[in-house]
Design a protein around this nucleic acid. Structure first.
Length: 803
DNA sequence: CAGCACTGTCATCGT
DNA sequence: TTACGATGACAGTGC
């Protein structure tokens, strides 16, 4: 008791001070009960389910042992209390809950706009990590907590379309002051013009060009050195969104092979890297001075620099027959779902990694990138896909400038087919400390929206969802279907193609997410569970774990309930058992839906009877036979309902409850035994009851843990499959880019070669001469005989190495 | 009636 | 050494 008191009071005081320091009204009773399990854990310590808590030291806090601290029955109780608390908190200011964050996320596009005009420090906070980190953390992002290129990418699109309004303005003031100075009217005007352009059938390139112009007017060109890095970054993001990189003709709606409009943008490989890749394809000769043609080198270099614009006219090779039928449709669907969930997850996890960077590689430089003309065609189509992707309810964080919504929110946007991309800035984790830190540094008064606005936002944003989903679905499907096609197109070997096919196929026997739909609640569950998987453990078990530390108020509440119902509620148990803290978390787990058992489980029946003698079925000695006969059916019922040990205890006339036997600390237990002079048989039974009772709880915990582990593993598999899909997509993008680069180099090669003349002004016959690239970037013209010799040598060397 | 899932119990091990 | 938790294995029970 003392331990709990000390622990609780100290933690409570500390936390109260903390909260008061940041200006949050403290309603600890509410928080401690259920609203914020992590919060409670901060105060009360980790969950007992995973930690070996000395419950018996805390048992005194429970007045009557009405419910066991580890009883699964508590789940329902806490769920009820949590819901009640949520309802009660509807009208009061409180630490923002994840639910609160949800609809705020929908308003983020406007938030960004407002951020441009009203730089907010919180945005800087939320997005402190730059794009560089996003790229660097691409691999770590597989784990679900990392960056979300889409959102960043989307931001770039937004940046481009709106011409001014990326929140990174706050960080790169030097570059973006012009944009930041744009007023809301300016932005609205730009937006209107933009939509008019779209309505008039202007292609995206046209629009982007104009937007680029606007941007160039609004801001000074970024340093040239930024161009390449930004290109790479944007194209990287492009690679992530294959379908989004496909622009649609403004008039016909046809899909334009967009990669030809911006070769450089389609890959994160720099030109040097591509040339390096080309070295593997084209025979590069050694430098031989007599054939050096510096002019050619220069030309080639220039041509390479201008690649994006010059390549626009290149036709696509005719598509090969699609190998779609080889793919199992269901597997394809799963992969599509995986990709879509990947995107959703990336959106969810965008958070501070998504954008805003103080480095030169930030998405902020997308303006300069678009000026280079190498990045075109995105910013609209993908934005429509983003808005439906919704967000994890548990990972969204509140934008600090949400009060700007009323003025900046344009309902039309949500209704159009090309809505502005919602710039989702969300907390990367559901960790409450994270949230608190975020809010701690922000103006708290600005965090909470007035209720009317809330409802409005909710209403306006919700109906948008289905539409973009279908479009994304189609795009994703087409995209995924085209992957193999692409692979074949790339001249992949049959083995490679089959490998790709395997990769696209589901590889695990687990049917983890086949039933998941991106728009179903299960999707949101999966989207959040990855990040929450680590925290879900604590959150999930916190309720139970907190029971061990439970406050008196809770205990008091528990006790009457248990006593009143005689300690057993079949439905209650049924619900709690599998609902397992938060039933909503398992809506997406079909394997749990069929569980409908009604076994008695952790029943405090006899204990409650013992605790409440008035409810106890009197033994034959205490009552007359008549009364006993009247109560006999009830006795039978109780016997049936009670556990074996309880019956045994009753039979052996153990003078205290099984609950006490099981849950008392050793000292008190021994004390109890010493108080009552029990026979050897009774003692043995009591010890057995204690042992079995503890083991029962241990088994329950063990199974719970096991189940949780399985769920987490499933989530891990799901995440990995999603990552696999993402990586496959990126791979395909790279392949596509490489192919385009090959084509471009080939055409340039032809162009250059045909223009070369020897000393007598005659063209070099292609059959006798070839251009060779040297490692230092120069281009040589060499006789093919020499080339063959030089290429054979490395071959031999390679063969020797292989031997 | 078989199969499955859940639950309780025991034995055992580790802390 | 004792108490206790974790866990595999088994059996009982209900569907």
């Amino acid at each position: 008791m003392l331990y709990l008191k000390k622990y609780f009071t100290e933690g409570l005081i500390q936390f109260t001070i903390l909260l008061s320091l940041i200006g949050v009204r403290v309603d600890l009773d509410t928080y401690l009960s259920n609203q914020l399990p992590p919060l409670r854990e901060i105060i009360l310590g980790p969950s007992s389910a995973y930690t070996q808590t000395q419950f018996h030291n805390l048992r005194n806090t429970l007045d009557g042992y009405g419910i066991h601290p580890k009883s699964v029955d508590l789940d329902q109780f806490f769920t009820t209390r949590r819901l009640l608390n949520q309802v009660r908190q509807l009208d009061r200011l409180s630490v923002p809950s994840p639910e609160l964050s949800t609809w705020l996320v929908h308003r983020d596009p406007e938030t960004v706009v407002s951020a441009a005009s009203q730089p907010s420090p919180s945005i800087t906070l939320d997005n402190g990590t730059g794009l560089e980190d996003v790229n660097n953390s691409e691999a770590p992002a597989m784990r679900g907590g990392g960056g979300a290129p889409e959102s960043t990418y989307n931001l770039s699109g937004e940046d481009r379309t709106l011409g001014a309004v990326a929140p990174e303005d706050n960080q790169e003031q030097g570059n973006r002051e012009g944009n930041a100075d744009l007023t809301k009217e300016d932005i609205d005007l730009i937006d209107i013009l933009w939509r008019q352009d779209i309505d008039l059938g202007a292609g995206r390139e046209v629009f982007n060009y104009s937007s680029r112009q606007k941007e160039s007017e609004a801001e000074k060109p970024s340093p040239e050195e930024k161009k390449e890095g930004t290109e790479a970054q944007e194209s990287w993001r492009n690679g992530v969104n294959l379908q989004e990189a496909q622009p649609v003709d403004g008039e016909t709606g046809e899909s334009i092979p967009e990669q030809l409009t911006g070769l450089g943008s389609q890959t994160s490989l720099s030109l040097q890297e591509c040339l390096r890749l080309l070295e593997a394809t084209f025979p590069f000769g050694e430098e031989s001075p007599e054939f050096v043609a510096p002019v050619v080198t220069a030309e080639l270099a220039v041509a390479n620099e201008e690649a994006p614009s010059t390549s626009q006219g290149l036709p696509l090779p005719p598509p090969l027959p699609q190998p779609v039928p080889q793919l199992d449709l269901e597997q394809q669907w799963q992969d599509i779902m995986a990709i879509m969930e990947l995107q959703e997850m990336e959106v969810n996890n965008t958070s501070e990694n998504s954008f805003l960077s103080t480095t030169s590689n930030s998405a902020n430089t997308s303006g300069s990138t678009s000026e280079s003309g190498s990045v075109e065609g995105f910013g609209l189509t993908h934005s429509s896909t983003l808005i439906h992707q919704d967000v994890s309810l548990h990972q969204a964080s509140l934008p600090s400038c949400s009060q700007d919504f009323p003025t900046l929110f344009n309902p039309e946007i949500d209704g159009t087919s090309t809505p502005h991309p919602p710039l989702l800035r969300m907390s990367s984790s559901s960790n409450s400390s994270n949230v608190n830190s975020t809010f701690g540094a922000t103006n708290l008064t600005g965090l909470f929206l007035p209720p009317p606005l809330n409802s409005t936002n909710n209403i306006t944003s919700t109906p948008v969802l289905p539409d973009p989903f279908s479009s994304l679905l189609e795009e994703s499907m087409l995209d995924e279907i085209s992957l193999l096609d692409l692979a074949m197109e790339e001249g992949f070997s049959q083995a490679q193609a089959s490998q790709l096919e395997d990769e696209l196929d589901s590889d695990s026997g687990l049917s983890l997410d086949s039933s998941h739909s991106p728009v179903s609640p299960s999707s949101s569950e999966t989207s959040c569970s990855s990040a929450a998987s680590s925290s879900s453990t604590s959150a999930t078990f916190s309720e139970e774990g907190a029971v061990g530390y439970s406050t008196d108020s809770e205990s008091v509440t528990v006790e009457p309930e248990e006593g009143a119902v005689g300690g057993y509620q079949p439905e209650f148990n049924k619900l709690c058992r599998m609902s397992y803290q938060d039933p909503s978390q398992f809506h997406g787990l079909p394997q749990l839906d069929n569980i409908n058992h009604n076994h008695t489980y952790n029943l405090p029946l006899s204990s409650s009877l013992d605790e409440h003698p008035e409810l106890q079925i009197p033994t034959g000695k205490k009552i007359g036979r008549e009364k006993q006969s009247k109560l006999q059916p009830q006795q039978d019922f109780l016997d049936k309902q009670s556990s074996r040990d309880e019956r045994r205890a009753r039979a052996m006339k153990i003078p205290f409850s099984n609950e006490k036997i099981i849950n008392l600390p050793v000292e008190e237990f021994n004390e109890l035994l010493s108080k009552h002079h029990l026979s050897e048989a009774q003692l043995a039974l009591v010890r057995d009851i204690r042992r079995r009772g503890k083991n029962k709880m241990a088994a329950q915990n063990c199974r719970k843990r096991k189940l949780d582990t399985i769920i987490n593993l499933e989530q891990g598999v799901h995440d990995m499959r999603r990552d696999k899909a993402r990586l496959l997509k990126e791979k395909m993008e790279f392949i596509r880019s490489i192919r385009q680069m090959k084509q471009k180099v080939q055409s340039l090669y032809q162009e250059v070669f045909t223009q070369l003349r020897d000393e007598e002004g005659r063209p070099y016959p292609p059959s006798e001469y070839s251009l060779q690239y040297s490692a230092n970037g120069s281009v040589l013209i060499m006789p093919r005989s020499m080339t063959d010799q030089q290429t054979r040598k490395p071959d031999k060397k390679q063969k020797d190495k292989k031997k």
